[in-house]
């Protein structure tokens, strides 16, 4: 039986406005995370199949992500639709970028590797013991129990990166999802190179500025523990 799919928190929805792209990672694999002008979120390998340029440096027009190097355009299914050097050519549909699954819940963007053809059979993004929950529905969305139970009224606080291994951070916080003081929920994302991201949400009564400063203090603690 294949391993159940792991869902990783990748960004706060607020930090990826319409028509933008940003870098993130799924396990050890670099990911270009982007939102179309119409609002659709996609997560792909961060590499243009033409010359290997990172797609997270690209640009979004309408429902297409373009590579910054030669302007190759890919639709939301990651199929190449335009090669500007040959404006009259219809690119063969075989030119695609391997994809991850992407979903938005609780103001957080979650990504997961896929084992089907669109993921090109690469499961490197699985990592081990990382991420939040497991399982997908038939349409590819997260299974109800695949994501941590979060109250419905949380608002976005901040994402910040910690120079410490994701598993060690989760261990120190008592889980990949942790509640900390001030009504703050922290979701831990493991990143390559022994780093982690803390994606944090706050309940509507919380003082966001004070909570932001407590997160800075939490990061200092996590990093000084690692250095000790």
């Amino acid at each position: 039986m294949p391993d159940p799919i792991l869902w990783h928190p990748a960004a706060l929805s607020r930090d990826l406005p319409a028509a933008t792209v940003m870098p993130t990672a799924c396990g050890d694999v670099e990911v270009a995370l982007w939102r179309s002008a119409g609002g659709r979120v996609s997560a792909w390998y961060d590499r243009c199949p033409h010359r290997g340029m990172r797609l997270s440096h690209g640009f979004v027009r309408g429902e297409m992500l373009s590579c910054i190097y030669h302007g190759w355009r890919f639709d939301t299914e990651a199929v190449c639709r335009k090669i500007p050097a040959h404006p009259d050519l219809t690119p063969p549909e075989t030119i695609t970028v391997p994809r991850f699954r992407a979903a938005e819940r609780h103001g957080v963007i979650w990504i997961a590797p896929r084992s089907d053809a669109a993921g090109q059979g690469q499961e490197a993004g699985q990592g081990q013991g990382r991420g939040q929950g497991r399982g997908t529905l038939d349409d590819g969305d997260p299974a109800p129990d695949a994501l941590p139970p979060l109250p419905g009224d949380l608002g976005p606080l901040r994402s910040l990166q910690v120079a410490r291994d994701g598993a060690a951070v989760a261990d120190a916080l008592g889980g990949w999802h942790a509640r900390v003081a001030g009504g703050v929920h922290v979701l831990v994302q493991a990143l390559p190179g022994g780093h982690a991201a803390l994606h944090s949400l706050i309940d509507p009564e919380g003082d966001a500025i004070a909570a932001s400063r407590r997160l800075e203090a939490l990061r200092r603690d996590l990093e000084s523990e690692a250095a000790a």
């Binding site: 670099e30 961060d46 590499r47 010359r51 290997g52 340029m53 990172r54 440096h57 910054i68 190097y69």
Partner: peptide
């Protein structure tokens, strides 16, 4: 320069 430093892999295939 920022293009060249962001091609993957760094080695020329």
């Amino acid at each position: 320069r920022s293009i060249l430093e962001n091609q993957v892999p760094a080695l020329l295939p």
